[in-house]
Design a protein around this nucleic acid. Structure first.
Lengths: 350, 350
DNA sequence: TTGAAAGCGCTAACAG
DNA sequence: CTGTTAGCGCTTTCAA
């Protein structure tokens, strides 16, 4: 016991709950209770312990907490951290987590089901208290399995699962807003850039947006004028879309790109051919990512209020962790943001 | 036990290393050694244990590992997950982490020193094996303290600390590339948009880029033509910059925005006044974020190869965790990417 | 209201 | 080369 070394400023070990308890002259069990705001501690003890925690600069060791109870950490799985929309979600999430003493950690899961599954498992292995999965590519069955182990809120996918909470924008409505806008402008033949899917999965936003597009066209008696371009929702996919449209016999006068990123790829490709929207054709995106508002871009798009989505997801997750039993599904109302890439159809010289 | 009930989703408890050991008929210590690829296990045992791990779908519990040894997780602190450049870094990082069995978790630390410090502490509390701090706003003293507890690689800040590794672009050179390019185009009076700092901190990229700008101007005998505009590196700061430049008696014919995000703000503001680059003045950014390459934007900028930065940072961190003692500092060579926002000066009608 | 003590799943001495 | 055993820092019965 060479503990009599007092005076050395170089304290290298961090304080544990045992140190706190000793410093406050109480048992570790009591210190733990104070730490967790648990039931049954006198105010006097609470104060004393908290003072000791401050004095020792005590910070609980999360893995240790995780061994028995909670880690007070929630994990968020995204495909890629570079998505302006995800960032808005993270912001909203953070805003509800901050006041609670929960903390957020983000895992970039990549773009395929296998690597996303791995990312999710890693989050579980870390003993997170709950998970936010943003537009996950995993199968419903996997989702079910995961939600058996840990509270899960899915963002972006339209699930009605009884074991998973969800928050998403009303993509059906969003598509209708775009079509209504384009039709009001005078367009009749309208294209939709679809995100190619191996298997049609009705719960994914791309499916809902496509369905919404087709339905809205039908409501305008324009089913015959709906043209679906099948590529990928990405910069490169947008470029492909332009080429595919160019190859069409009867091209549309307006195109709903399905996602901002696709619209940006299209704008880039058009630009390289010395063309632009809305001159070549009107163009609308979806997401209202920050880039869409930059002057020279000025993309007409649909805003889904990522911040609100994230905040709602956070609230749902906290409720779930707190013990709510039944699943809760939120559908948020999107809004159309009209900018400069949509205009009445250009009369074509024949 | 109603375990024979075919419909019930079976296992609810996950396998532990004890289960694996029992299943393989060995001690937990041996199972642990196999798990860690540790020294001194016969091939026969290794095989048997690995088979058991597969059979039981064993996945190590990270908090438990963290209690005694490593968590095999590295944490990355960024201000905001929505930064295209950070995403490139994360990609590069992931590419070197994947083959090792390390995993990456990202913490959005926000835009002030206090919240970043908190994020860093949280990462430490999670018992991460190492930290990547991207352009951290924390003080050198705090950095020193942190690096005493855990291996740290700083990305983006030019530190020469003996206890912290670092990887950054050669911002001094980057600035010179831009100035050389603009001067070669025929510009003489050139502006630099500075990121306002409360205290001048020479290690921060903004300081180095400013210094590099001034030095390059001096080398061209153009010190008198260097005009520094003091705002913030953000979309809004870019807008301010345009207004500040408009108020100048003798405005520059070219502006180096210091960062892409600032240049984008400037483009937006110019656009709203029906102006654009390079007509109003030539404009260059820094970072080569993905948006910069979008056709209608076409921003001339400096590429720092985020992927390479991230990969290098990952390698350094792994080495450090592996036991390397002395600090290592990498300076990566940036490259100029010329696009459409820079051109020879427009002759002004007087 | 408080405290003693038994683990959580894993790793790291140390024996055999 | 393999096994036994003692914790890591915390939470949680269960007594006092």
């Amino acid at each position: 016991m060479t503990d009599t070394d007092g005076g050395r400023p170089a304290r290298t070990k961090r304080a544990t709950i045992v140190d706190v308890a000793r410093h406050a002259g109480v048992s570790t069990a009591s210190a733990s209770k104070v730490l967790r705001n648990a039931y049954g501690v006198s105010d006097a003890m609470k104060e004393r312990v908290q003072a000791s925690m401050e004095a020792l600069e005590y910070r609980p060791h999360r893995p240790a907490r995780g061994m028995r109870g909670r880690t007070y950490t929630v994990g968020m799985m995204v495909s890629d951290i570079d998505n302006p929309y995800f960032s808005l979600i993270a912001d909203g999430l953070a805003s509800v987590l901050r006041p609670s003493d929960y903390e957020l950690l983000v895992s970039p899961g990549g773009y395929d089901a296998a690597s996303q599954n791995q990312a999710i498992e890693a989050l579980i292995d870390h003993q997170m208290d709950g998970l936010i999965l943003v537009a996950p590519l995993v199968s419903p069955a996997d989702l079910e399995r995961v939600s058996g182990e840990i509270p899960v809120v899915v963002v972006g996918s339209h699930t009605a699962s009884p074991s998973v909470d969800s928050v998403s924008g009303d993509d059906q409505l969003g598509s209708r807003l775009v079509v209504d806008h384009l039709v009001a402008l005078g367009h009749r033949r309208i294209g939709f850039v679809a995100n190619h899917q191996v298997a049609a999965e009705s719960h994914r936003p791309e499916s809902v947006r496509l369905a919404g597009f087709l339905e809205a066209m039908a409501q305008h008696d324009l089913s015959d004028e709906a043209v679906v371009i099948d590529t990928q929702w990405s910069l490169e996919g947008g470029r492909d879309a332009v080429r595919l449209i160019d190859a069409l016999d009867n091209p549309p006068s307006a195109v709903f790109a399905g996602a901002d990123i696709t619209a940006l790829g299209m704008m880039s490709e058009l630009w390289e051919g010395s063309r632009s929207a809305p001159d070549a054709y009107s163009l609308a995106g979806y997401d209202n990512s920050r880039i869409a508002s930059i002057g020279p871009i000025g993309l007409t798009t649909v805003d889904q209020s990522g911040h609100e989505v994230g905040a709602s997801a956070g609230r749902l997750l906290l409720e779930r962790i707190g013990g709510r039993g039944e699943a809760s599904h939120l559908l948020l109302r999107p809004e159309l943001v009209v900018r400069t890439t949509t205009a009445p159809p250009t009369p074509r010289a024949l």
